[in-house]
Amino acid sequence: MKQHYFEERNKESWQQIKTILSAKKKRFDRDFPALYRQLCRDLAIARERCYSSFLIQDLEDLVEKGHQHLYGKKGRNSFGLINYFGREFPALIRQEWRLVLFSHFLFYVPFFLMLVLIQFYPHIAYMVIPEESIMQMEEIYDPASGHFEEQRSAADDIQMLGFYIFNNVGIDFKCFAGGILGGIGSIFFIFYNGLIIGAVAGHVTALGFTETFWSFVSGHSALELTAAVFSGACGMKMGFALINPGNLTRLLALKKAAATGVKMLYGTAFMTFTAAFIEAFWSSNTHIPNSTKYIFGITFWVLVLLYFAFAGRGYEPEQN
C-alpha cells in the first residue's frame, strides 16, 4: 500500500487520538486504549513498510504522548491522607523497626552521654558547642534574664514559627537526602544532633536552669525528636540498600528503598511541622504553668508511642 493511501485510511483515528490528547480537561476516554493500540499497530506497519521518516516520526510522537496518557496516571485513592496517617505511616515505621531502633540509638546514646557527663565534667560542653552559642543558650534559658516575666508578642511567635519550619523540616529533608551516601549522611546528622542537643540540655541543667529549659522543650520534644530520628531511618533505608542490595541490582534496590524511604519521610516531615507550631505558640507561652507543660509533654510522648505501636496494625504497606 502506498503511503498516501495508508495515511488517508487512518487519518480519522489518528485525529481522534490527537483530539483526546489535546483536550484541556484530561478525562479518561473509554475508546482510548483501543485507538492507542491501533496506533501502535499503524506505527509498526509504517516502520515495516519503510514509509517516509516524517510519517514515522509523527506517529512516534503520537505514540509517545499516548503512552504517557495511558500509563502515566496512577490510580489515586481519595482516602489517601486518612489511609496514610491512619495505617500506612505507622505500619511503615514498624516494618522498618530495625532501622528506626538503630536510629534511636544513634541519637540517644550521645544525647544521654552528654547530658550525664556534663553534670560531672562541665567543660565538655565547650568542646562540643562553640562558646558564642553557649552564651546565647545561657541568655535564653536564664530565669533571671527577665524575658520569662512577660509574654512574647504574637509577631515574634510567628517569626519563630517560620524559623522552626524552615530550619527543622529542612534538616529532616537533608538528613533523608544524606542517606544516599551509603547511609553516612544520615548517621552523621543523627549522631551530631544527639550530641549537640544532649550537650545543650546537659549544660543548662548543670547551670540549674532546669525549670525554664525542660518546661520549654517538653511540649514539642516528643514529635520533634522522634521525627528527627525517623528522618535518619528514612535516609539509612536508602543508603543501606546500596550497601546490601540483596537479590536485586544495586540500582533497583536503591530505587525501591528510596520509594519506601520517601513514604516514611512524608509523615516524619508532618510531625516536625506540627512540632514547630507547638514550639512557637505553646512552649514559649509564659502564662501556662510549668506543671501543665510537663503533663502536656508526657501525654504527647505516650500518644506518639501508642500511635506507632498500635495504629494500623495488620496493615501491610504496599511493596514498591
Binding site: 508578642s153 504574637a154 509577631a155 515574634d156 511567635d157 510567628i158 517569626q159 519563630m160 514559627l161 517560620g162 524559623f163 519550619i165 524552615f166
Partner: peptide
Amino acid sequence: DAGVGLSLI
C-alpha cells in the same frame, strides 16, 4: 516581624 516568619515559611 511576623512577616519574617511568613517569608521564612
